[in-house]
Nucleic acid binder design. Structure first.
Lengths: 337, 337
DNA sequence: CTGTTAGCGCCTTCAC
DNA sequence: GTGAAGGCGCTAACAG
């Protein structure tokens, strides 16, 4: 059994409230140097550690923030988790990382759990099958920053990527290489980044006079199998694309597998640009051209907004921060034949 | 402000203790069907959710378990985190994932934090620069399972891999291919798996009569740079190894980078076997021979042990579970020239 | 300067 | 069957 304030107080011969005062050492609170030392000594002897559960109950705050992400096994989200964790830790918060497994029900449960554990704020990459539970957080003025996936009509802070522009640039680059038929492979189409990338993709097709065909757009679930199936479909078209814009790490692996099994080669038969964050990108059989995110920058902006919001709530004055991505040109993109 | 038991009691016209009884619905507790319904209705109306902070304070248990890992951005640990999260969630626990960043001080802080938040148990992959804080957990009979990294002399449950045997088999395989000089590249050498793999490696060198040279063993920190530097060193030896056994995902990327920059090719100039869990392994420029872990199996065994321990503490009766790894032979290993 | 008092929201024992 | 009382460990307001 861990020792309590009372135990320390007993040993030091004072009242527990005095111990409490000393321990949280507000500068302006008067307490004699002598008793202070006596208390500190008792704390040491008993190896006292404050009970954060009790503190949280009493204070209505927990010095904890909840990170809610759809897939901790994704290098993108785990990268954000890592960076955010470091920032939180340095600022004296604990970061509680929860995985929703891209499942809306679980997200709702998880947010309620975090709420009932009294976290001071949230960073959420929402599943986006529903939004009312997020809306509730906003209405209750609970500090919240969305990352990667925004609900545009909602008054929340958000840190998102330049998805529309990055897709547009990718298409532009492929167009410069002479590609006329570009496929779009992605996971779930209700996700904000996918939607935005689609916008950029379509805009690109338009502006550069490329072939438009709804069959060139293949979206599925967030799985390797889905990426595989989508790519197989695209590459089985009589009039198949000569280049692919692929969203997501695991989708990309599915796409690579499909291409390999079809006996096609990159970039001779098909060029590829991928949204992925794998450190293996340069070492793939064909080093792959990627659009990459700075997870550190995303984490930093998100933390900054959240921290500010926790300290001094900004009533409805909301920031939508856009983080620039970067196109790393590697060997998976080549002129169309 | 969220509603409390009292609010519900008010609305239902009963006392809060009655509400509490109904809500935790122990079958054998008598309560009239009528008031029960009235209470349930009030709960619905107020959208009441129990406060887990208060509950944890009162009950001395939180229905939460803490996962403490050295690097959430590693596919190995994030894979374990994901699987464990699913298991915990299904069993009604919340999983709090904490990253120690391979830093001993932070690990200590983080465990104390989790402790003071009243978690019911721990799953820990320890940093292993120190062990007294872990020993304390054991002494206080706090449910605990170590994963990946064991303290052999400590009476704790542990789920570890067959590191010695897997390294031995890797050496055996390389020996069969005719390699006489095999290098060993890894991260920190105080880690249990690294130590065990070294044991297996040395045993292999012995049994198969391979060249022994302490210069063939290059261990460093847990970074890409370290893996890079170690590999550069090995491959600069006058009498350099023709094969490398590499531990760790990020170390492997460093090694690949070094080989590439040296202008060497795999497997012509150097064969490689890697302990890594990247899904990209089959798609690398040379698909890499890997020793892979079943993160799912590790998570399952760990959860089983922990769950059991939380429900009915087994005084000192401790299990060390060994999970088999698998050697996936790919193109990065070839006969020595 | 320090002690007393009164809860935070919940659960458990003991009454009735 | 249900209510009242007490307390988990902590902090804040008020005394003195």
């Amino acid at each position: 059994m861990a020792s309590t304030l009372k135990d320390v107080a007993m040993l030091a011969g004072v009242h527990s409230s005095t111990v409490s005062r000393v321990l949280r050492g507000k500068e302006n609170i008067p307490v004699s140097e002598e008793t202070r030392q006596r208390i500190l000594e008792a704390v040491r002897q008993l190896n006292y550690r404050p009970d954060k559960t009790a503190r949280a109950l009493r204070m209505r705050k927990s010095d904890a923030v909840g990170l809610v992400i759809p897939n901790i096994a994704s290098p993108y989200f785990s990268g954000i988790a890592k960076e955010l964790d470091i920032l939180c830790h340095n600022a004296g918060y604990s970061l509680m990382i929860y995985d929703t497994n891209e499942n809306q029900e679980k997200e709702i449960v998880v947010i309620e759990d975090l709420l009932s554990r009294g976290v001071d704020g949230f960073v959420i990459a929402p599943v986006q099958d529903a939004d009312s539970h997020i809306r509730q957080l906003v209405e209750q003025n609970i500090p919240l920053v969305l990352i990667d996936r925004d609900f545009e009509t909602m008054e929340t802070h958000a840190v998102i990527c330049d998805d529309e522009m990055s897709a547009y640039k990718a298409v532009s680059y492929l167009s410069d290489l002479g590609h006329k038929r570009i496929g779009f492979v992605s996971g779930r189409q209700n996700l904000y980044p996918v939607l935005k990338r689609l916008d950029g993709y379509r805009k690109g097709l338009n502006d550069f006079n490329l072939e438009k065909d709804t069959a060139f757009i293949a979206s599925g679930g967030p799985t390797l199998e889905s990426g595989y199936a989508s790519t197989v479909n695209l590459l089985s078209l009589p009039n198949k694309p000569t280049a692919l814009l692929v969203s997501g790490t695991i989708i990309t692996v599915g796409a690579l597998k499909a291409i390999q099994e079809k006996g096609l080669s990159i970039p001779e038969d098909v060029s590829i640009i991928s949204y992925t964050d794998t450190i293996y990108a340069p070492f793939l059989s064909t080093p792959i051209t990627t659009i990459s995110h700075s997870v550190k920058e995303i984490a930093e902006k998100a933390f900054e907004l959240l921290h500010q919001e926790i300290k001094t709530p900004t009533k409805g004055d909301v920031a939508k921060v856009i983080v620039q991505t970067h196109l790393y040109k590697r060997a998976s993109t080549a002129p169309a034949h």
